[in-house]
Design a protein around this nucleic acid. Structure first.
Lengths: 352, 352
DNA sequence: TTGTATGCGTTATCAG
DNA sequence: CTGATAACGCATACAA
């Protein structure tokens, strides 16, 4: 038997008005609990609305109020523990404040970033939370959006030259401390595996690494510093960087992986080549996976407070969106990364 | 100096009309490349629109067309490798088809599920992709939505009695095969760690486990079958279930963890109690983390094609949304889970 | 206290 | 070929 599927139709204020012999404005006011409506009418309307399960049409409201109660989120990759934890935080705060969260991902492509940005900002969102794509070196599109008054909050991979709210972790410190930890444990050939060099976080993390070397009298070596321009998204790219490291003339005794993706990739490569961690090569990397703690031997990691970052970014954004008066001050919130050192990891036998 | 922040204002068709001395209808038609507009006017309008970067207002369009080009996604937890991979798949297909993805999470709470559902379905979305919360035993809200014509596609945790598209993996088989693998390797006391018993997937997986036992002449033992009603979201709950298993009179020699969350929790508990896997207790579980392969000793897992599931669900949904004629047939797509057996895991020393 | 008219941005219908 | 008008659902200034 053929199944009848009707269109999803919902009741409007007009239906209520007609049914009750009132005008739409009266109904509207009653529903909004306006003081100028008599208690009887109010009750009448409210009861009926309840009965037929009236739900206001948010789209009509959006058109009228010129705001959608939606925020857009642009990240490079949703299926990534760091970003999904951030999105978790974003959703939590947005939900509590009655906002929808619209997500889109760039897969590290500048082109997709531009498309997503144009798509989202054609007034279907009230504000934007962004971690820029690894490919993006031209920030003019963000500048433009910013100049046109779109509330934007950056997190993680920020655009330093834009004067708006930013939420970051102290990448410099994370990398610095991890490097120092390796140095103190006797490692001398510490390699740095970087993401795309144009990213703010790449610069900061590399700087932290270099400072730690300098502070401890170790000199930097170019063949110990590798980059993955696609942020580790392309396995071939990772493989090449690792290959160069492992076969270079100065083979590292430790590797510092400067992003989640890179840590995983690095670990995978080492495993595939049957290189023992940390006996042959030690490894510390950024990681937000909830499984790192379960890896054996325990892996030392630099963990970012992703959930917190999402919450903070959203709070900042909502403040920006809902502030009646022009905002005159923007904040850059810097959170501390968590350096988690696990026994037997990154500790050379016989070292202090 | 005070910073001036203006509202994000965008150009409308009206602005173009005024600037060019045309009517809004002419502009609208020119922009839509209507045949009834002269080439000159068309060019004029198009050039000007390009110049001032005109973007149509999707909200006005939504109101007019009674569709938002947005789909809602409801999952229990965003920061979960399985779900984030599914969302990745959903976003991919949605993006390609010009749809926005609005996500919300229930954190396994029925109450939040209802709130999210009401919020999303008040006409701001064209369709819905859902994996029901662990707490949900009353499906009438979905039934109602369905009856009112809202296109819904369920994945993973489905509502069996609703006649709509569903995307699942063959949970029964996954659990069955994993159990058989354990049995063949000599394990006799195989525990099953389950999620909430009302969930479709819990029932299927448990059935697979039981069938495998029966087929191999092992009898089921109630104290080897434990449930975590909150799907492993509450650590205390996990801890209790594990505690009962480990201290019960028939201590298991192997555990089958029947969801991602449970596998992680189980592993964590075993680690905390310094119980060696698989020497003391073997473990096979559902897992979609990209780190499971890096765990040492290697962990055997049942992996779900999450990305594929997201893509399929979205394709089905878009078909439902965009079909002009009433849909008369609904499909349940069942994908095969991947049973990944790794050396030295789940293999008893000296077993066949 | 309630009803009428207008507008949010767009497209479709109907005139011209 | 182009312009005026109505409509999508709602809220509000203005009338009554």
């Amino acid at each position: 038997m053929p199944l009848i599927v009707m269109k999803f139709e919902a009741v409007t204020i007009k239906d209520i008005a007609k049914a009750l012999g009132l005008s739409t404005s009266t109904v509207s006011r009653a529903l909004r609990d306006s003081y100028e409506i008599s208690p009887e009418t109010k009750k009448l309307v409210l009861d009926y609305a309840e009965k037929i399960n009236y739900q206001p049409n948010p789209i009509a409201l959006s058109l009228k109020e010129r705001r959608s109660h939606s925020i857009g989120v642009i990240v490079s990759e949703i299926a990534n523990s760091f970003f999904s934890q951030v999105i978790d935080g974003i959703e939590s705060v947005a939900y509590r404040n009655g906002y929808n969260v619209i997500i889109s991902q760039t897969r590290e492509s500048y082109e997709r970033e531009v498309i997503n940005l144009n798509y989202l900002t054609s007034r279907s969102i009230d504000g934007l939370i962004v971690s820029v794509s690894a490919e993006t070196s031209d920030f003019s599109i963000f500048k433009e959006l910013y100049d046109r008054g779109m509330p934007i909050v950056f997190f993680d991979r920020i655009v330093p030259e834009l004067n708006t709210h930013k939420v970051v972790v102290d990448s410099y410190r994370g990398a610095y401390d991890a490097t120092v930890h390796l140095i103190r444990n006797g490692y001398k050939q510490i390699a740095a595996l970087n993401s795309n060099p144009v990213l703010s976080i790449t610069k900061d993390r590399l700087a932290g690494y270099l400072a730690a070397l300098a502070d401890h009298g170790l000199k930097e070596k170019n063949d110990l510093i590798k980059y993955c321009p696609h942020a580790g998204l392309l396995p071939a790219e990772m493989e090449e960087a690792m290959g160069q490291l492992l076969s270079g003339k100065s083979r590292p005794d430790a590797i510092l992986a400067l992003s989640d993706k890179l840590t995983t990739g690095c670990l995978r490569t080492l495993k595939a080549r049957k290189i023992k961690v940390p006996e042959e090569i030690a490894l510390i990397g950024f990681s937000n996976s909830d499984l790192t703690e379960l890896i054996d031997p325990p892996l030392s990691i630099i963990k970012q407070p992703a959930f917190e970052m999402g919450k903070l970014a959203t709070n900042s954004l909502l403040q920006l969106i809902e502030s009646k008066r022009p905002v005159t001050e923007f904040t850059t919130t810097t959170l501390a990364p968590q350096l988690i050192i696990r026994e037997s990891s990154g500790q050379r036998k016989g070292a202090s």
